[in-house]
Design a protein around this nucleic acid. Structure first.
Length: 268
DNA sequence: ACCCAGGAAATTC
DNA sequence: GAATTTCATGGG
């Protein structure tokens, strides 16, 4: 399948900027991985995005995944007016887009992310999928459903080596699978209410809730503050707050996060 | 040995 | 209630 007229997208910048953890780059610059239970390979040729392995009936799914209906060029221009450093950050990786990931996968991934580093987050998620996901083709597995994880006990997760996060993962799965938390409905309720609901999960605080809201529920106004972002706000935007960035604050946050991680010398 | 990692819970003051 | 400690695990 091919989606044409693509603008403001770079696969590497988007798929490997700390919002998703399962995409692998191939030698030719394409990316392969599994999302929504499908094994696919993305290739970007100019303004054509080809998606190998995608069924035509999933056109909207993948278009939404890359948030293609939003004009990121305009968003970037608008954000850039706020602050010169915001302009630099947006210019540094103009191909970043906010993915609309599966809500449960995002929730579970960011529960795992806490007090952890990105390479190890990827390893743990890989082990989670190998151990409890469904095999698709050799070496590739689906992300295990909340229902699957809900049926386990924390000790069953020992092989993935997530440590103290095991019981958090189980609690997130159980509240999701039982319907106690309806992730789909959290896409539309007031954002404060959605955040509060997510935080009833053991192991979900403000930061993990905001990551789930932004990357899983596509609440683009959410502005997760992790250690990098706190440093960045203090050092680069002392006069601004998350709400200064407006309804696309989440996009601003991602430009700043990526820019900061790639320029650690800014904080020495 | 020590420090840190896209934090949050548990404990202590 | 606010500040500090602990929580597994692995890499530098």
């Amino acid at each position: 399948m091919i989606i044409s007229d693509i603008k403001d997208l770079a696969l590497g910048e988007t798929l490997d900027c700390g919002q998703a953890f399962r995409w692998k780059e191939n030698e030719d610059g394409s990316f392969t991985g599994v999302a929504f239970g499908r094994l696919v390979t993305f290739r970007l040729d100019g303004s054509n995005l080809s998606i190998d392995g995608a069924d035509e009936s999933d056109r909207k799914l993948w278009s939404d995944y890359f948030d293609l209906s939003l004009d990121y060029g305009s968003v970037r221009n608008e954000l850039s007016l706020l602050h010169p450093t915001m302009c630099d950050a947006a210019k540094y990786a103009p191909g970043i887009r906010i993915l609309a990931q599966d809500p449960w996968e995002a929730l579970c991934s960011f529960v795992i992310s806490q007090n952890n580093n990105i390479p190890r987050i990827k390893l743990i998620i890989n082990r989670l999928c190998e151990a409890f996901g469904d095999p698709i083709s050799d070496g590739w597995y689906t992300f295990p459903s909340a229902e699957t994880i809900a049926a386990l006990e924390p000790d069953d997760l020992a092989p993935i080596k997530a440590g103290f996060r095991n019981r958090y993962i189980i609690d997130a799965a159980r509240k999701t699978a039982s319907g106690e938390i309806d992730l789909e409905s959290l896409k539309t309720v007031p954002v404060e209410e959605a955040r509060e609901k997510l935080m009833t999960i053991t192991g979900v605080g403000v930061k993990v809730a905001d990551c789930t809201l932004l990357y899983g529920l596509h609440r683009l106004d959410c502005f997760p503050l992790d250690v990098w972002m706190k440093r960045a706000m203090a050092a680069l935007f002392p006069e601004l707050t998350p709400s200064s960035f407006g309804k696309y604050g989440g996009i601003a946050q991602q430009y700043i996060f990526h820019y900061s991680r790639m320029h650690p010398e800014l904080f020495e």
